[in-house]
Amino acid sequence: MQRKKFIQVSAMGLVGLSSVSFVNFQPQITKDDLMGKGNPTLVGEGYKLRKKANQAFLKMKSAAFKQGIKLKVVSSYRDYAHQNRIWERKYERYTANGLSPTKAIHKIIEYSTIPGTSRHHWGTDLDIVDGSVKQPKDVLLEKHFYNGGAFSRFKTWMDHNANDFGFYLVYTNKKGRKGFKYEPWHYSYAPTSIAMLKEFKKLDIKSELQKAVLMGSSNFTSEFIQQYMDQNILDINPKLL
């Protein structure tokens, strides 16, 4: 084979190999990953995040620590079974207190997601507080983050710095926002979670929820599911869409 021809063939081979390798080694986001039924590679000490999200979190944690704030993770990755335990515990409590199944479901989704639809399934989201102060009895209450509450200084620091590390509040206090109530503790790593949400929106969630065996799921009407998607899943911080 002539040298010039050999170089041309070799170059074509390298291009072909490069293209195939690129396709084969791109991380795939599966339905199971999106719904908390997969087995994603997660890292972290005392919490679980995807690798890039954890790298960014550690940088943010280090920066906060220099200002006397110790970022403490209250909740991170949750699989489907974990989210279902939260769902069942609340459903049983609310119905035992006299709420109808429909009212119990609407009460639950003020703060908690239906199993299979939680952002905590993705390994990108965290509930965070300040571990350097005396911990209130129930840490995830809005009052602790304002007006001299235990986490007021934490909230101020996060407001000014979290975005620099790629983390954004999910459920903001923007006037008129619907869906889940304001959560000043829930942050999402945007560089990864935006892609996860994009893929999640492609799923037939109506079908998935209507076939799910969950407490109260017989009350998941088409209208309810559509409203849940529009308000609870998609009415979030625009920076995360």
Rank of each mutant, 00 (worst) to 15 (best):
A104G: 06
I233S: 01
K181E: 15
L234P: 00
S188N: 06
L17E: 04
N232G: 08
R93N: 13
F151K: 01
H120T: 06
K107N: 12
A96D: 06
R153Y: 06
S217E: 07
K66L: 14
G166P: 02
H144T: 06
R153L: 12
F25M: 10
L14T: 09
Y91I: 04
D33V: 00
K66H: 07
P40R: 11
Y187N: 10
L99P: 07
D138R: 13
K174F: 02
P184F: 07
N232L: 08
E199L: 03
L241T: 05
S76R: 00
Y91A: 02
S112P: 00
K48R: 11
A63D: 10
T41R: 11
D230H: 06
N147M: 10
S62A: 15
T172F: 02
N163L: 11
A190M: 12
K37W: 05
L214H: 06
I86R: 05
K70N: 14
K202P: 03
T156Q: 15
F151T: 05
M158V: 07
T113A: 14
Y171F: 15
S152N: 12
K5Y: 08
K52M: 10
S76I: 04
N84R: 14
S193E: 11
H160K: 15
F65G: 06
H144Q: 14
A56T: 05
K202D: 00
V133T: 07
P136I: 08
W185A: 15
I205Q: 03
E208P: 01
T95W: 02
L209I: 00
E199P: 00
S222Q: 10
Y228E: 11
E88Q: 13
R78W: 01
F224C: 08
S132V: 09
R3Y: 11
S21I: 13
P238T: 01
G98V: 08
W87D: 04
I29H: 00
K51E: 13
K48L: 12
K181I: 11
V43K: 04
F224G: 07
V15H: 03
M35A: 06
K103R: 14
D159T: 04
